[in-house]
Structure formats: C-alpha cells, structure tokens
C-alpha cells in the first residue's frame, strides 16, 4: 500500500521533514496505511495557518483549542517534545514518531518516560517541587479553578510525599515509574484510542489520490 505514496508522488508535495511511510511504520506501532492516514491529518494541521507543510505552534494551538492564540503550559511542553530538532516546527517524521508513543500498542515504558519528560519542565532529569506547583497553578488557571494557597501547597506536599520516596526533594525516573505503577490513571492521557482507528478517521489518502487522478 505504501507504494501508492511513492508511485503517485506527483500528487504529493513532499515537505521538509517528510519521511517514507514504510520507514516510519518500521519504527513505530503504526502500519504503512496508518502512517499514510496520519499524513492526511498532518497536511491538514500544517497548512491551517501558514501553508508551508510544517506544524507551527500557532497551528498546534489552533488544532487543540480552536484558538491559535491560546497559551497553555502543557501544550507548549507537548509541542517542544514533538519538535525533536528544536527548530520551532513539528516535521512529519517528528509528528508520527511522537504520536507513536500515544498509540494503544506502544510500550508502557515509553508512555511513562514521555510523561516524565513532559513534567520535567526544566529538563533537569528530575521533577522538582517547584515544577509540580507551577503545573498545578497552570492547570487551575486553565480551568478557572480557585484554590487557596494553603490548599495548593497541601496538594503538592501530599503528592510529593507519596512520589518522592527517597525524600530528596525531587522525583527521579525510578520514583516516577513506581508512582505510575501505583496510579496507572496518571498516564491515561498518554494513550489515544483514535490512533487505532486513524485510517477510519482519515481514510482518504489513497482514495483521494485516486479520485484526483481520475478527475
């Protein structure tokens, strides 16, 4: 099926960062046709504001929030982790490889590690108390929830007490793994059921190409 992409390549403007679906399928939980379906999604997202076939942060925000100007700490972190080359855009290969972690069949340890990197805001290799508090405050702000400072401190303290078993004021990767194994719901958002049905959601890559050919 992947042959369609290369044999019909006259129909596909290959953008910067484009990688062959067969290569991406071999390195991720996706099949070739699922990668092709993701290309449909990618092209839609990457041309929503700036038509250059690359996902800019505003386009990512627009897709997530229906608002290109909505700032959000967590969306920023996701964007930064997807932007592996750190060039300010998410390229197609980066998009597929990163979304692969969210596939229902991706290894659990990959999901746990990704969530750790997500929450390690300053990339020190640890989740620190200040970072956790910053994330709680961001979530409250985003949700228009108001809690007293004491309440916020209590939530952060309690969580830290439970997760920081070495009691050194920071959560390392081993502590994080142990904490997630006790609270599996923490990484529920690291699985996107949609990805199992991506060819149903975006079924039209091959079909559309053929339709265009016949027009």
């Amino acid at each position: 099926m992947g042959c369609y992409l290369s044999t019909n390549s006259k129909k596909v403007r290959k953008t910067q960062g484009y990688e062959e679906p067969t290569v991406l399928a071999s390195e991720t939980p996706f099949t070739v046709s699922e990668v092709e379906a993701l290309y449909e999604l990618y092209m839609k997202l990457s041309n929503s504001i700036i038509e250059d076939g690359l996902i800019h942060k505003e386009e990512f925000q627009l897709a997530l929030f229906r608002n290109e100007n909505e700032k959000n700490l967590f969306a920023d972190r996701i964007f930064d982790l997807f932007d592996v080359k750190r060039n300010g855009v998410i390229e197609f290969g980066e998009f597929v490889r990163s979304l692969g972690v969210f596939h229902p069949n991706a290894p659990l340890e990959d999901k746990i590690a990704f969530a750790f990197r997500l929450y390690d805001l300053r990339q020190t290799g640890y989740i620190e108390r200040e970072e956790l508090k910053e994330m709680v405050l961001a979530l409250l702000h985003e949700s228009d929830l108001v809690l007293s400072d004491d309440m916020i401190e209590s939530i952060v303290d309690k969580t830290f007490k439970d997760a920081d078993t070495k009691d050194d004021g920071r959560i390392d990767q081993d502590e994080w793994k142990a904490f997630v194994s006790q609270h599996p719901s923490l990484i529920k958002n690291m699985t996107l059921p949609y990805l199992k049905d991506i060819t149903l959601v975006f079924p039209s890559f091959i079909a559309r190409t053929e339709v265009e050919d016949s027009e």
Binding site: F102, L118, L132, L139, M151, V156, F179, L186, V201
Partner: peptide, 26 residues
C-alpha cells in the same frame, strides 16, 4: 472531591493541553 486528597499529577493530567484527541476532531 476534596482537593487536598487529590493527586497533583492526576489534576494536571486533565489539562486540555494534554488532550491530543482534539487533533483528530474534524
């Protein structure tokens, strides 16, 4: 839900910014 008993990470994981499902909505 009494907030003090909440797990901070549980709270954070509800962020809309982490809900990538929105990317797939047409």
């Amino acid at each position: 839900v009494a907030p003090v008993t909440m797990n901070a990470f549980e709270l954070i994981s509800k962020s809309r910014g982490l809900n990538l499902g929105s990317l797939f909505e047409k």
